[in-house]
């Protein structure tokens, strides 16, 4: 009876992992081959990969279509500036403290927004983000509505030279994004991930097969807030300045993130990575066109939603049966059991 084993890896996932490993080495050495402009662009790209991956977990897997994740980006940013300016915490330490605090804050937020379903949930999350933005603009020690810059002394204390600081921030962005992605992959490979993937595919069946759907959703919501706030803290540490309008921007931290996830492939880990690359490519090549570029992006999103509703990666994965990451469980019957 025990002639079975279960494997996660497939040929495509072995290739995928190898490609990812090579990409990581190349990216980790970027400070030695890339100029300042490239580093800045890549670091920004990493943060979008992280944000989109987190939103994908929330909306693509748990079915929680939030348009208010900027609440946690901004919360992370403001927590960092508050800790650094008011309590003298080291900025990098502040990033990691912002995560758990945001996770705690997300619990009462969930208690409120989880009462709403579908579109009402989406609107609810956006309202919460707006409330956060208004609250942030009331904090006069952090510049109120016009925001505040990181004190020069703190910036200088981070690293001896500007170049060294930029390297540090670059590696921090890469490291945090890898951390977020690794955490997501580990979550999906765990027991919770099994439940989450089932919920992604069919909530009614998930419930009827013993999964406490609400509990899993709550866990995902809290974890996502945790990660999103850390990424938000880092984004604004890189910007060296925070204001309510930039930190709680629905455009930057939700609209673009949804665009990325949808064109890349919602409900798949690979989707947001592909989507971010496409998004940055489009932004770099089309940004001269001014506001026309937003129109073109909108058109691309509509075309993808109509012809490839599972995104570009979804199209590829379904046609070729690929998975770039070893997430699926494959049943292998072992040779001695050939009866």
């Amino acid at each position: 009876m025990s002639g079975y084993s279960v494997e996660h890896a497939t040929r495509s996932s072995r290739v995928g992992v190898a490609v990812i490993a090579i990409a990581l080495v190349v990216l980790a050495t970027a400070p030695f081959w890339g100029d300042r402009q490239t580093l800045r662009l890549l670091a920004e790209l990493f943060t979008f990969v992280a944000l989109a991956s987190l939103w994908n977990l929330l909306a693509g897997y748990a079915g929680l279509v939030s348009v208010g994740q900027q609440a946690f980006v901004g919360l992370g940013a403001y927590l960092l500036f508050a800790m650094v300016i008011l309590a003298g915490v080291h900025p990098i330490a502040a990033i990691f403290i912002a995560g758990p605090i945001a996770a705690l804050v997300s619990i009462p937020v969930a208690a409120l927004t989880f009462r709403l379903r579908g579109a009402y949930f989406a609107i609810g999350t956006w309202v919460v983000a707006e409330v956060f933005r208004l609250l942030a603009s009331q904090i006069s020690v952090l510049g109120g509505g016009s925001g505040v810059s990181l004190p020069a002394s703190v910036v200088i204390a981070m690293a001896p030279t500007r170049t060294a600081r930029e390297f540090e921030l670059y590696w921090l962005a890469l490291g945090l994004t890898v951390l977020v992605l690794a955490a997501i992959v580990m979550l999906l490979r765990s027991r919770h991930g099994l439940a989450l993937t089932a919920i992604r595919d069919n909530e009614v069946a998930a419930q009827s097969n013993g999964i406490d759907v609400t509990r899993v959703k709550l866990i995902v919501y809290v974890l996502t807030a945790f990660g999103t706030a850390m990424v938000g803290a880092l984004i604004f540490l890189m910007k060296l300045r925070v204001s309510p309008d930039t930190a709680f921007s629905v455009n930057d931290w939700t609209a673009f993130v949804i665009f990325i996830t949808v064109i890349g492939g919602i409900g798949r880990v690979e989707g947001p990575i592909i989507g971010t690359i496409i998004f940055f490519f489009m932004r770099q090549t089309l940004s001269d066109l001014g506001s026309l570029y937003l129109l073109i992006m909108g058109a691309v999103a509509i075309v993808v939603m109509l012809w490839a509703p599972k995104g570009l990666w979804g199209l590829i994965a379904e046609r070729f049966g690929w998975q770039a990451l070893p997430l699926q469980r494959h049943l292998v019957s072992t040779p001695q059991d050939k009866s």
Binding site: V6, R191, L194, A195, T197, A198, R200, D201, N202, V204, A205, A206, S208, N209, G210, I211, G267, Q328, R329, H330, L331
Partner: peptide, 24 residues
């Protein structure tokens, strides 16, 4: 009501692990 994106085996593993509260 299958979990369409999961394999047939995974579908059954979900039911077994959660429906009977067992380790995967």
């Amino acid at each position: 009501q299958p979990f369409s994106g999961m394999t047939v085996f995974e579908n059954v593993v979900v039911a077994a692990a959660f429906g009977n509260n067992e380790r995967e």
